[in-house]
């Protein structure tokens, strides 16, 4: 007989928004590895199909939807069965110095990084799709960027700051239903999004930055395993909080 582990996701079904790449994809894998079921949401059906093939039909499901639109959000909320948890990992990044920022780029980042997160949660809660009084958990992938102030990161930093701040209010609202809400604020994680940034700045600048991380840059799994902890009953007394994952970058200073 297997002993119950509070770290297990056995019997839990989790919705992952932004499932087709980087951190979201790693979270889908970790959820299934921890015994849970996952429904991944993203725009690219081909990548989502690959995810289902790799994780196994019966363990993984997908919904093709553009979360940047109201239609996409409504589609997800309508199609989803009741879930025990939700991870919002959809997001984009763009480096732009202040004087080049225009409403269009500001709205583009705020839309997917913040507005869609709030609107998806609003629809899921309104339709009672997140199980109440059942240790349900919402995990938002924010960024350590919102604690610091990297040059040219205004668009990204502002959107993640909004996410992290709002998470506390959402946690407060949902606490009566015993639905927990926490954020993860990672530093640099090696993903395609990070490689794009390397293209914009330079490989040398990235190497210099990497050297400032006592434990090096993070891997998507590092964030995914923390997400599993926050989704599991092991963290059932934790809500309205944030976990910073930065390999010691912003605390272990020489």
């Amino acid at each position: 007989m297997t002993e119950y582990s509070p770290f297990s996701l056995h019997g839990k079904h989790i919705l992952v928004a932004g499932a087709s790449s980087g951190i979201g994809w790693a979270i889908c894998k970790s959820i299934v590895a921890a015994g849970g079921k996952v429904t991944g949401v993203a725009r690219r059906a081909d990548l989502l199909q690959k995810m289902v093939q790799e994780l196994g039909e019966g363990n993984a499901f997908f919904i093709e939807a553009d979360l940047a639109t109201d239609n996409g959000i409504e589609k997800v909320a309508a199609m989803m069965p009741d879930v025990n948890g939700l991870v919002y990992a959809a997001g984009v990044s763009k480096m732009l110095p202040l004087k080049f920022i225009k409403r269009e780029s500001l709205e583009e980042l705020m839309n997917i990084n913040y507005f869609s997160m709030v609107l998806l949660l609003a629809q899921m809660v309104r339709q009672k799709k997140i199980k109440r009084n059942a240790h349900s958990s919402i995990v938002l992938i924010s960024s350590v960027a919102q604690q610091i102030g990297t040059k040219s990161s205004i668009l990204y930093t502002g959107s993640k700051g909004a996410m992290s701040s709002a998470s506390k209010a959402i946690a407060n609202e949902l606490s009566s239903q015993k639905i927990r809400v926490n954020t993860i604020e990672p530093g640099m994680v090696q993903t395609a999004m990070a490689s794009e940034m390397e293209d914009v700045i330079s490989a040398e600048a990235v190497e210099k930055d990497k050297a400032k991380y006592p434990l090096g840059y993070g891997m998507p799994d590092d964030v995914a395993n923390t997400a599993v902890f926050l989704l599991s009953d092991a963290s059932k007394w934790m809500t309205g909080r944030s976990l910073t994952l930065d390999g010691g970058r912003y605390v272990l200073l020489d």
């Binding site: 080049f100 293209d199 914009v200 330079s202």
Partner: peptide
């Protein structure tokens, strides 16, 4: 970063650190 942004804004072309 400003030069990269200027080229994008004025010429709609993407240049990189390289």
């Amino acid at each position: 970063l400003m030069i990269i942004a200027m080229v994008d804004e004025q010429y709609s072309k993407k240049i990189t650190g390289a």
